Simulated scan of single mutants.
Amino acid sequence: MLVDLIAGARPNFIKIAPIIEAIQEEQKNGTDIEYRLIHTGQHYDKLLSSAFFEQLGIPEPYVNLHAKGETQAELTAAIMHRYEQVLQTRRPDLALVVGDVTSTMACAITAKKMNNIPLAHVEAGIRSGDLTMPEEINRIVTDAITDFFFTTTNTANENLIHIGVPEQRIFFVGNTMIDTLLKQMPRFKKPALWEQYNLAPQQYIVTTLHRPSNVDDPQKLKSLVEAIIQGANGLPIIFPAHPRTMKAFDKINVSAENLHVIEPLGYLEFNYLVKQAKIVVTDSGGITEETTVMKVPCMTLRDNTERPETYTIGTSMLLGTSPSAIQPAFDKLYRGEWKKGEVPELWDGHTAKRIVHILKNLF
């Protein structure tokens, strides 16, 4: 059995690493299973790509498609064209895609159009209901042509059943991103900036913003950052900036002694900061999952989320995108009234093993 594992962006690498490890374990046990790691090249910055391969112990990819594009359409077309060329050399028994980035959708479509290759989607069924998000389009399209659905929560199961997916094709397995988090937690690494900015546990704030609704309008980004600075009450704000956000920062005039805008960090360094933070302020879905498991308070600056369990069960508050919502949330934190949160079912570090075991039985 040959499985193509598709990864192209930073969240993909985190989710795919434990699946590779689980396959390698099955190989040691004599299971006839091979994999090809297909790196689409969607994230090509070293801090967003190769550094993750090194830190998470991901082997060199079978191929790097080096797909680039200035627009969503150009990137999608480049990925599809180059993955099609790989499929022409040898047809896999299964294409496995993870998450909801452009690489996920593009390779899913290509696999299905190439002789109807069976398709598995890890993290299937999550929905924000917001069609202005490119990721929501990717989720809907991918799930429309998927054969085997691996889900993170019962909410995702219900979303799939609602659109007519037969229950026997849905497998509630948990969250591979949490597999990686729990495995790597003992290896979290103090970044050099810890001493540089005189950081102390629970005495600083971590912020990340990258969604177009928050960063593409300079005035909106400026208002959000100023609200975070005001709410911080002088605590250091560590702001690892996605390249998209860094470009936006060049257009606004915001500065403060306690605001430190830095380049993206490696996985081990970034999560060291998150684990020790007083609170995280973000618009990332994946980070809200990680803060939930690490029991770190989190403000989610989004009007909706495809991961509702992070605020219904976990440690996040869904604030919306209005800067005026930030100060009341900080006040709640300082009063010691932030909820403790719980870890969702099956987010236990064994999701990838469950996925590979199911695939072994299916094929």
Rank of each mutant, 00 (worst) to 15 (best):
T146Y: 08
M105H: 12
T76G: 01
V254N: 10
E158R: 15
A120S: 11
P240K: 00
I33H: 06
E345V: 04
L37M: 07
I14C: 06
Q196R: 15
G314H: 03
D130P: 13
H39F: 07
T315D: 10
R244P: 03
K222C: 00
L235T: 00
E269T: 01
G30A: 04
W338S: 08
A95C: 15
L37I: 11
H66F: 12
Q276G: 02
L182Y: 05
V281M: 12
D45S: 07
L319G: 09
R354G: 01
N233G: 12
G349V: 07
G129N: 04
Q55F: 05
I163P: 07
N175Q: 13
E345G: 04
H242Q: 09
F149W: 01
N116Y: 01
F363V: 10
P308C: 15
A111G: 08
L87R: 09
T310R: 09
V293H: 00
A106D: 04
L56Y: 12
N214H: 10
I237E: 04
Q24E: 15
L268F: 00
L259Y: 03
E34M: 12
R335V: 01
A120G: 15
V225I: 15
D283K: 03
D216T: 06
N154L: 09
L181V: 03
F249W: 12
L94V: 11
